[in-house]
């Protein structure tokens, strides 16, 4: 699959998806993979909850990038803080700026003005994208954005379009236009979607795919299908045998160790069968741009699993050459 190669040559990767599908796991893994290929990577956390930090045994991230792994930095965007800083830059005097940003009226406007938080988030990302070191090299080669869950993620990406339509002049317009151009430039920005082989996440991924092509003008470049159970743990004959022995034991009311072993095997077999439909649906949607990520038997993934997935991504890249 040569499509995967593209991801490591982009500056901005937006990782989208429904809540709970593993956006953070995928974001961190993409970042670690790119870092291993020698890129300087910035991981960006956008939500309220601390999701990236626990991967690196930290409690939370601040609004200043910190090193979390070799060649990997992580940061949290705080839109309100960005807005305050923006106002300060605009006013010039920090004394007056403080008076403004501390006022209740400003507070209401900041909360109530549609899209202001999204603009600030995107503006911040844009500045990181532009950021250069003293010697002229880029501060970050790749920026991975662990986007908010689908609904809010969509409004984040939709915003620049809306703003450029609503606000036709002024500093906000010109800046937003630049951001919009950056987002829609596929040589620069890739939109990726994470989903699970389950009904609602797959439906949402498909809806998102349509919206992103038709409305955002930012087609989805890669789909990550997370939590895929192993397809070949047992041969079909073995599976049949296991299932019938389990049923037999169940009829006899057994709950001994061998029955528990059969129960665990049965769970694996049945889950995989259930996943089959959704894996097919995703393959039909876009076979060549689909990356399957195996299920990990633990509910608190760490950097270990993310490194494992990073290896998987790099292997896919090598196989495609």
């Amino acid at each position: 699959m040569k499509e995967i190669q593209g991801i490591f040559n982009r500056r901005l990767i937006f990782v989208m998806g429904k809540g709970g599908v593993g956006k953070t796991t995928v974001s961190v893994s993409i970042g670690l993979a790119a870092a291993r290929l020698g890129k300087k990577v910035l991981l960006v956390e956008t939500g309220k909850a601390d999701t990236i930090a626990p991967f690196f045994r930290m409690n939370s991230l601040s609004n200043i990038p910190v090193v979390v792994h070799e060649n990997v930095w992580a940061v949290r965007v705080d839109p309100r803080r960005e807005l305050d800083e923006y106002v300060q830059a605009h006013v010039g005097s920090s004394f007056i700026a403080k008076q403004i940003t501390n006022s209740k009226l400003y507070d209401h406007l900041a909360e109530a003005t549609p899209g202001i938080k999204e603009v600030m988030t995107l503006g911040r990302i844009w500045r990181w994208e532009q950021s250069k070191e003293k010697n002229g090299t880029l501060t970050f080669d790749m920026i991975v954005i662990d986007s908010p869950a689908t609904g809010h993620g969509l409004s984040l990406l939709r915003l620049p379009q809306t703003v450029t339509e609503m606000v036709r002049v002024g500093p906000i317009f010109s800046q937003t236009k630049m951001i919009l151009d950056m987002l829609q430039n596929q040589a620069l920005t890739w939109l990726t979607v994470v989903t699970l082989p389950e009904e609602l996440p797959v439906n949402e991924a498909m809806q998102f795919n349509t919206i992103s092509s038709n409305e955002l003008n930012m087609p989805v470049q890669l789909f990550f299908l997370n939590g895929v159970y192993p397809p070949d743990a047992f041969t079909p004959e073995q599976a049949t045998d296991i299932l019938s022995r389990f049923e037999e034991g169940k009829k006899l009311g057994r709950s001994d160790r061998s029955q528990m072993v059969l129960d665990s095997a049965r769970r694996l077999i049945i889950r995989r069968q259930l996943q089959e439909t959704y894996i097919e649906q995703m393959k039909n949607l876009n076979h060549s741009r689909l990356i399957e990520i195996p299920f990990y038997f633990i509910n608190r993934l760490t950097v270990t699993e993310a490194l494992d997935i990073a290896t998987l991504l790099i292997n896919k890249l090598n196989h495609s050459e």
């Binding site: 807005l83 923006y86 106002v87 605009h90 006013v91 007056i96 008076q99 403004i100 006022s103 009226l105 400003y106 406007l109 003005t113 549609p114 202001i116 703003v163 609503m166 606000v167 036709r168 002049v169 002024g170 500093p171 906000i172 317009f173």
Partner: peptide, 18 residues
Amino acid sequence: SPILRVTGQVMGTQVLDD
């Protein structure tokens, strides 16, 4: 007040018109 003036400049006058 400077609050509104700055807000208008930052957030765009079109928004305030709406």
